[in-house]
Design a protein around this nucleic acid. Structure first.
Length: 419
RNA sequence: GGAGAGAUGGCAGAGCGGUUGAAUGCACUGGUCUUGAAAACCAGCAAGCCUUAAUAGGGCUUCCAGGGUUCGAAUCCCUGUCUCUCCGCCA
């Protein structure tokens, strides 16, 4: 949620930043509605004040046994006026709130302008090997006999996968490895629900705008699209002592995405699935330190790729590519030999106080109160990491070698090709 | 699923329909004392919104949520949500 007062004072900045993010809300209109709401509130408060005074007086007179009929009459008349005005006020207030929920976060000043990923800024690159025109993981998986999309289709439909044997073990090893990394980097591991209520999704910004992207399970509840949702909402409506900052959390969860609007996009293989595993890290930070926190997130996620010896680059998302709630996002992209390009494997974002406002998480520092900044990042998307290992560590006629760093997690160092 | 109890400020916990925004304790903030700290003592201390130059003053709202009764509701009635206890069922 953006700050309405800040919007009023920096209207030009917001118009520029929000339209770059594709926001079509009429901001002047919103400000006008708000000042109208304030006018009504002042009027309403005055009437209520009169009413409260009348009630007190009635109480006084009644206790002395005096007649209160006239005053009761006055009060009732006042009530009629109030309830009419109150209706107008409530409507306006709901209208403003509904609109506010639709407004995305303002991009940071150093975020590049642009409509799509072609305007993203590559800021860093690390290359171990960079093979081209390699087999893709679907083909390799078939040669291994351990990656089955047909079976998954039978069970569930498109965009699911069944991993068998050593591939399933490899995925589990990756999860364990990444959680250990997160722990070593100071994140507290959490086990959280995979089903959340609507309030949680509103809190992080998936609702109300992106209802179609969520899997609904009935009873007004949803499957989580990322552990960001339960982790961030752990502190919904909580007051944080400033000495507890930064709060660093992590969780491994499956993630469920309806992928509405992704028809025909990445339909082959396990790049874009309805269900995938992810290790997520979330930070609650002092507002003054969130920039450094974002660097830290990117560093921590990158270290995992370093250890796995996978080539990657860092990309600052441009305004048009930036998510709804994010002020700034750095994507980490891993090299895929089959596609001859880098593909997203982690997304690290600073949300500033946007989510904190929505979840009403506050920090108390002596007499000072303020909103914390929230940040999160994947560390990493496990399905895509598995895919990257398959493609980058495949040797024709031999199979997929296991990255050395996983030696302690697995009792094999090669997934053999069949025959 | 059946029966019962409950939901109050950062936490714990009082609260006859009318100066109750709410006792008390803890925590917190400031002060006295102390070489310093602790202890003790004194004082302050809920949040949101409107108004305002103001973190000064004034006003409104808020005791789980939504309705209702009343001139007036934390307090009475209805509905919902959640929590706890007992029974049943169960990984």
């Amino acid at each position: 949620m953006i700050d309405l007062n800040d919007l009023k004072e920096n209207i030009a900045l917001y118009k520029k930043g929000l339209s770059a993010k594709g926001c079509e809300v009429n901001l002047d209109d919103l400000i006008n509605k708000n000042s109208k709401k304030n006018t009504i509130q002042t009027e309403l408060d005055e009437l209520k004040s009169q009413k409260n005074n009348l009630s007190k007086e009635i109480g006084n007179l009644a206790s002395k046994g005096e007649d209160t009929k006239q005053l009761k009459n006055d009060s009732e008349n006042l009530n009629k006026t109030i309830s009419q005005l109150q209706k107008d006020f409530d409507l306006l207030k709901t209208d403003i709130y509904t609109t506010m929920l639709q407004i995305p976060n303002l991009p940071d000043a150093d975020v590049p302008f642009g409509n799509d990923e072609s305007n993203n800024d590559e800021i860093n690159k690390k290359i171990f090997t960079q093979h081209k025109d390699g087999l893709d993981h679907v083909e390799i998986g078939e040669r291994l006999g351990l990656l089955d999309f047909d079976l998954a289709n039978k069970l569930s439909g498109a965009r699911f996968v069944v991993l068998k044997g050593k591939l399933a073990q490899l995925q589990r090893a990756l999860i364990q490895f990444m959680l250990d990394e997160a722990k070593d980097n100071g994140y507290e591991e959490m086990y959280v629900p995979f089903i959340v209520n609507a309030d949680s999704l509103v809190g992080t910004g998936q609702l109300p705008k992106f209802e179609d992207d969520q899997f609904k399970v009935g009873d007004g509840k949803y499957l989580i699209p990322t552990a960001e949702v339960p982790l961030t909402n752990l502190l919904r409506d909580e007051v944080i002592d400033s000495s507890d900052l930064p709060i660093n959390l992590t969780a491994h969860t499956p993630c469920f995405r309806a992928e509405a609007g992704s028809y025909g996009k990445d339909t082959r293989g396990m790049i874009r699935q309805h269900q995938f595993e992810k290790i997520e890290v979330v930070k609650f930070s002092d507002p003054k330190k969130s920039n450094e926190c974002l660097d830290e997130l990117v560093l921590h996620a990158s270290k995992i790729l370093d250890k796995l010896e996978l080539s990657y680059r860092h990309v600052v998302l441009c305004t048009g590519d930036l998510g709804f709630s994010a002020a700034k996002t750095v994507d980490i992209e891993v090299w895929l030999p089959s596609q001859n390009c880098f593909r997203e494997i982690s997304s690290c974002s600073n949300f500033r106080d946007f989510q904190a406002r929505r979840i009403n998480a506050r920090v108390k520092d002596g007499k000072d109160k303020f909103f914390p900044h929230t940040l999160n990042g994947s560390a990493l998307a496990v399905g895509r990491t598995l895919l990257a290992i398959i493609e980058n560590f495949y040797e024709n006629g031999l199979g997929v070698r296991i990255p050395k760093v996983l030696a302690n997690y697995l009792d094999f160092d090669l997934i053999e090709e069949q025959k």
